[in-house]
């Protein structure tokens, strides 16, 4: 555990808390993509199956359980409790366009052809593109609430901080995982346009709106 990894995890945790707090306080999930949230639940479920096979630390187990539980709780809020506020018309990205190619890629490009390893690889690839339905939704409506922007910024920062963590681990631990690094870079690149808008607009007190 290094400082970048810890900051990355805290940023990820903060993103989830911001999202839950936004929904709970406003009693609404307007502007949030249910597709992205379903994909995240799939990501956590397929990646953390090792909860049953190996124990790493209390921290590790606690975080994994929290990520899984919060992702399903978010889906419950969106598709059940606050269903009336869910903006399904603008959430029209097709999940199968991501899940199917990513599933195929996980079968073809992995470290070891084992069920758990393939599922782990699938989750890494899927996480890298899981934000696309959300970004698609923001571009379709042309705007995002400020609280949603904070959520996306924290979520994007998490993988950027993981890249610093991988650079650190490469130099100081001799550790390198090509699959995680490439997918992590793809994931971070997808946020670049958003980061630019966040810094130039939201941080200056303006609402995030896209030029028509």
């Amino acid at each position: 555990m290094n400082v970048f990894r810890l900051l990355g995890d805290m940023s990820h945790l903060l993103a989830i808390l911001i999202l839950l707090l936004k929904m709970w306080k406003t009693r609404s999930c307007a502007g949030i993509s249910g597709k992205t949230q379903i994909l995240f639940a799939l990501v956590f479920t397929t990646r953390y199956l090792d909860l049953f096979s190996s124990f790493i630390s209390i921290y590790n187990t606690t975080m994994k359980l929290f990520f899984i539980a919060s992702s399903y709780f978010t889906i419950f809020l969106m598709y059940s409790k606050f269903k009336a506020t869910y903006d399904s018309n603008h959430d029209s990205f097709r999940m199968e366009f991501l899940v199917v190619p990513v599933g195929g890629l996980a079968f073809l490009v992995n470290h070891e052809f084992l069920p758990l390893e393939i599922l782990w690889t699938f989750s890494i690839y899927l996480e890298s593109v899981a934000i696309l339905p959300q970004l698609f939704m923001v571009s379709k409506t042309g705007e995002a609430e400020t609280i949603t922007s904070h959520y996306l910024f924290a979520l994007g920062s998490y993988r950027l901080l993981y890249i610093f963590n991988w650079v650190y681990r490469y130099y100081f631990d001799g550790f390198f995982d090509l699959i995680a690094v490439v997918a992590g870079c793809v994931q971070t690149i997808l946020y670049c346009d958003f980061f630019y808008l966040y810094i130039t607009k939201v941080l200056k007190g303006k609402k995030l709106s896209l030029p028509a």
């Binding site: 590790n60 975080m63 470290h111 993981y162 681990r169 550790f175 390198f176 995982d177 090509l178």
Partner: peptide, 10 residues
């Protein structure tokens, strides 16, 4: 190249 160490990441 060590990849198994990535499994402690979240």
């Amino acid at each position: 190249v060590d990849y198994t160490a990535s499994k402690d990441e979240l």
